[in-house]
Design a protein around this nucleic acid. Sequence first.
DNA 1: GGATCCTTCTTCTTCTTC
Length: 338
Amino acid sequence: MLIISRVVSLGGIVAPRCTSLCVSHFSACHCLTSPKRRSPYSSVDSERYSSLLKSVMSARVSSQTPESLQAEDEHIYGPVVKAQAPSSAPRRREPRTLHPFLRSEETEETEESGPPVRISLNRGQGRSLVPSVTRILQQTLSPEQIFYLERWKRRMVAELGEEGFKEYSQNLFRQGKLFHSALEEILTAGDTKRNKSASETPEHPPEVRGYMESVSHVLEDISAVRAIESTVQHDTLNYLGIADCVARYRGVLCVIDWKTSEKPKPFLGNTYDNPIQVAAYAGALNNDDNYKYQVENGLIVVAYKDGSPAHAHQLNSELMLEYWNTWLIRLEEFTDPR
DNA sequence: GGATCCTTCTTCTTCTTC
C-alpha cells in the first residue's frame, strides 16, 4: 500500500513529462529520430505487481508513511524541487519569424587543401553584447530539463558531497577540454598524421587516450578540414559561438561537434540540445562573411573514455533545417522572454 | 595583469530475473 502511494506520487512528477513531452520542444529535438515512447505504465506486468504487493504487505514497512518517505527523500537528496506545472504552455512548433538557414546568394567554392581556418573570439570588437549559443541554450532550457538536471545534481551531491561533486564536475570539464585540444592538434596536423592510429600518438595525456581510440574510426572518415575552433557570428540574428570543426565526413561537408560522455549515447535523442547547437553554428557560419562557403550538414561525435567506438550522429540537411527552426524558437525565447 | 567570455558536461522510470 505504502509502496503504491510512493509509485503514484512519483508518477505525479513523471507523468506530465510523458504526456507533455511530445507537444513540447522535446518533440522537436528528441523525437525526430527515435520511436514514439509508450507510457511507462502501459506494459505493466500486473502479475508481477500482484506478487510485489504481497511481498510488500508482508514486509516490515508498516512504520513508513508517505510523509516519512518524503522526509526520507528530503533527508537524502534535499528538498524536492518540483517541475513546473504541466499546465505551462507547450513550446511553439514554429518560430515567429523564419530566417533562412542558408544564404540566398551564390557563394564561391574555396580551396580545400590549405590549412584549416581558426578565427579566434575577440570580444573587444563590438561583440561584448552578442550572446553565445551556449548561453542561449542554457537560459532557455525547458522546465523538464531543469527538473531532471537539478534532480541529477541533488543525487550526485548526496553521493559525493558538495566538494566531491565540484571536483567531479571539474574533472568532466577538464577531460572534455583535453579531448578537444588533442583533436585540434591532430586535425590541424593534416591527413598524414591523422591517418595513423590515434591511440599511437604518445603526446596525448593519458586521460584522453581512451577518447582518442574511441574516435579513431571516425577520424578515418574525416577529410578536408576547413575550420577548427572557429568563431561564427550571425549579425542579423545577433548571436555567436565557436564551432569545433568544419570538415568533410565521408565526403559531406559538416559542422562537427565533439563530445565526451560517461554514458553511451547511441541515438541522436540521447544528445539532448546538441543538435540544436550544431544547427545554430551552421546557420551562423552560413551567414558569416568570414566563410565563403556554406554548410548544410552536421555531425555529433560522442566519444567514450574506455575506448569503445564513438557514436557518430549525422544530421542531414533536412534534419538541420528542423533543428534550425528549433534554434530560432529558443533564440526568440531568449530575446523576448514571456 | 586582471576580468570576462566561450566552451568543456550533467537529464530521459526503475526494478528483478536469467
